[in-house]
Amino acid sequence: MGKKNNEVNDFANLSFEQALKMLEETVEKLENGGLTLTETTDIYEQGMKLSKTCSNMLKATELTISKIQTRYSDETSTFNE
C-alpha cells in the first residue's frame, strides 16, 4: 500500500521528459525479455501508470502566461516597434 502510494507520488514529481523516458524504458525492458511473469506484470503496470501520467501532463489546453517585471514593464511608450 505504502509502496504504491510512493510510486504514484514519484511519478507526480517527474518532468514530462523524465516520465516519457521511463515509459520508453519499460518497453525496452519488456522487449529485452528474460523476465518472470511477476516482473512482466509489474513492469506493465508501471508502464500503464507512466503512460497515464504523461497523458495527464499534456492535458493543459491553454498556455500559462506570466510576466517578469522589468524596468521597462510600464513604459509602453519605449516600445516603439
Partner: peptide, 30 residues
C-alpha cells in the same frame, strides 16, 4: 517588446502546437 506582433505571434504558435507550457514575458524595448 510586449506591444509588438512578435509576442502575439509566439503565443499563437505555441498555444497551437504545445499548450502545456508556461510562457514568461520579459517586457524589453528592442
Amino acid at each position: 517588446s510586449p506591444t509588438g506582433a512578435v509576442w502575439q505571434d509566439i503565443q499563437n504558435v505555441i498555444s497551437r502546437r504545445f499548450p502545456p507550457v508556461e510562457l514568461v514575458l520579459l517586457p524589453t524595448p528592442v
